[in-house]
Simulated assay, not measured.
Amino acid sequence: MRFIHAADLHLGMIPDAQHPWGRERANALFHSAEKIVDLVLQENVDALFLMGQIFHLPPLQKDLEYLHKLFQKIPFCHVFLFCKKTEENYFLRSFSFSENVHVFTEEQSRFYLPEPEMEILAMQEKDFSFSSAESFSLEHGDAIPILLWNERRAEEFLSLEKAQNSEHATAAKESPLASLPFSYIALGGESKRSVFANGKAAFPGSPEPLSAENTGEHGVYLGSIHPITKRLESLSFFPISTLQYVTLHLQLDPSVGQEALKQGLLKKIEERGKQNIYKIRFSGKRDPETKVDPSLFPKELRIVECLDETLPQYDFYALYKEHQQDILGFFIRSYLKKDLEDLSPMEKQSLFYGVSALLEGGKS
């Protein structure tokens, strides 16, 4: 039995809405749904598990018709998704999908599929009772047991496993999910992509990054379960995102001039791809004439954050001689009662920032 596990499409969301590329990012989320359906066709899978939030906001009729048209392209594949019983989900609860689409509305549901033969325990409870999953037993002996758990609290078990298997732990312990009687555990929620519980439980993350915190590749999991042994034979990540959020760190020194800094930044971005969206951090010491400001970035670049942690490398003694009778000189003298090397890191930072502010203020 072959399947695709995707989650948290957040259709209708506008990532980076305040930036010029916001609408493009919103369209990319819808395009990710189309890519998933294309992958179903390409791989000829039996099941598509859509976990987490499919829509960012409660969907309208037109949103569901869009999804319906996509699912009609894959009548051979059984699609599973969740919908909570709330008034705001009225359209989703009442929508008539094709017979290959199965929508779970109860907090806990049990579902049998004769071809391919699967028995599914679907849960979206806030107060997850582990006993419900532990006591699960097949009513059809030849079926493949699958757990679909659509609740953020599942992340607690991932955190627990990481803590238990950290280098500080006295002995690595098995994840609580690993002992559950299922061939595969499909999870959804706001989480980074991860596989745990001895490889049989996974968070796919969203197929497209939703914010600057969602770095790295994004996509879906493609898996296969043996119909006789009911063991997970393979689980591989398939990237489908159009771009990534990338964090760049540039370490400066006083020898780097303004033009060299600009060209170095552009080179790094070209290496990683201009289509990506960047968070950039500058650190180190720089020539006071070298500025970290928006002029470094051509308008076509996508920058969501620029953090300047650099310190200008001033000649404080020369500045003091030049400004002995004004506030800048008095400020420098208050620090130079000690040698520069004897100043604490906080004192050095205060000196650098104070001198920068006074020099900039004097220019205005």
Results as ranks from 00 to 15, higher is better:
T242E: 08
F71A: 09
V292I: 15
M1L: 09
Q164K: 06
Q251T: 15
R2E: 13
N27K: 06
D293L: 13
L248H: 12
L265N: 06
D293T: 10
E106I: 01
K200A: 08
G199S: 09
L359R: 14
K285H: 11
G264K: 09
L187E: 02
E115C: 00
K84M: 05
S255H: 07
S224Y: 10
Y90R: 14
H140F: 13
A172M: 09
T310M: 06
D339V: 00
G362T: 11
I240K: 04
S132Q: 10
N44F: 05
F3Q: 04
S356A: 14
A212K: 13
H56S: 09
E139K: 15
R286F: 02
P345K: 03
S234D: 15
T105W: 05
G257S: 00
K69N: 15
A186H: 03
R272P: 00
Q263M: 09
V220R: 00
T310C: 09
E305Y: 08
L301V: 03
S183C: 12
S166I: 01
P15T: 08
Y90H: 14
E270C: 02
S94A: 15
D315R: 10
F82K: 07
L248D: 12
Q42L: 13
F297Q: 03
I225H: 01
F182Q: 03
E270M: 03
F331E: 08
A201I: 07
I185W: 08
V292C: 12
H10F: 12
S283R: 12
K337I: 15
Y335L: 10
D293E: 12
